[in-house]
């Protein structure tokens, strides 16, 4: 069993996520890293790199290309297996939940691979969290914009102050058990229909 640093291939078309993962792996001292974003001639490129571990995101349809590695193992000098150890289903489940899969060469000790998989899972989850927060922030910004427009419409058509317009929107939202932004959106829609 060689103790040479593990060579890792990361296949991810999402550049931001790949960068987050790369950062984590490098910080853990895994510097023999190869990031593949373009999946044409994927198998040929993997064979040329001859990695110990291949990490691929589950949104990538090219994952099926990797399955061919099991069939054509003469071309990869060492047999490859998916990171499936029937005794460790929790870890593979966590990987699938996080949206990632890993393939390792046969004979690699589990202790050497486990930290890599754990790191990958946590970085993938961190990316999802980031994405979710970004989406929430975006939608909060959109909400604020539509509320501002609705307030403006109410101030203009009903002769209200900004404060009064906001109170009216909030009161309607509470009465109708809707979100403030939804009520604001209906004000904006109605105004456009009535030429307000």
């Amino acid at each position: 069993m060689s103790q040479a640093p593990l060579r890792i291939v990361v296949i991810d078309e999402n550049q931001v996520r790949a960068a987050i993962l790369e950062d984590g792996l490098r910080a853990a001292g895994l510097t023999d890293l190869h990031i593949i974003r373009e999946t044409t001639h994927l198998l040929r490129r993997i064979v040329a790199i001859d990695p110990d571990v291949v990490i691929i995101d589950l949104e990538n349809p090219s994952r099926d290309v990797l399955e061919q590695m099991f069939q054509v193992s003469r071309m990869v000098s060492r047999p490859v297996a998916m990171f499936v150890d029937q005794s460790d289903t929790a870890s593979i489940e966590a990987a699938i939940d996080a949206g990632v899969s890993a393939y390792i060469v046969d004979g690699l000790r589990k202790e050497r691979v486990k930290p890599i998989l754990d790191m990958t899972i946590s970085r993938f989850n961190a990316f999802s969290r980031l994405q979710r927060e970004l989406n929430e922030a975006k939608s909060a910004l959109e909400d604020r914009k539509v509320i501002e427009r609705a307030k403006g419409i109410l101030m203009r058509t009903r002769g209200l102050s900004e404060e009064e317009a906001f109170v009216l929107l909030r009161q309607s939202a509470m009465n109708e058990k809707k979100k403030l932004a939804e009520i604001a959106q209906s004000v904006v829609t109605a105004a456009s229909l009535f030429g307000g």
Binding site: E59, S62, D64, T89, I96, S101
Partner: peptide, 15 residues
């Protein structure tokens, strides 16, 4: 889903 490998694994791991 996007790949047969995913279909296989998500079935195996109860998703």
């Amino acid at each position: 889903d996007v790949s047969w490998s995913n279909i296989r694994d998500r079935l195996a791991f109860r998703q």
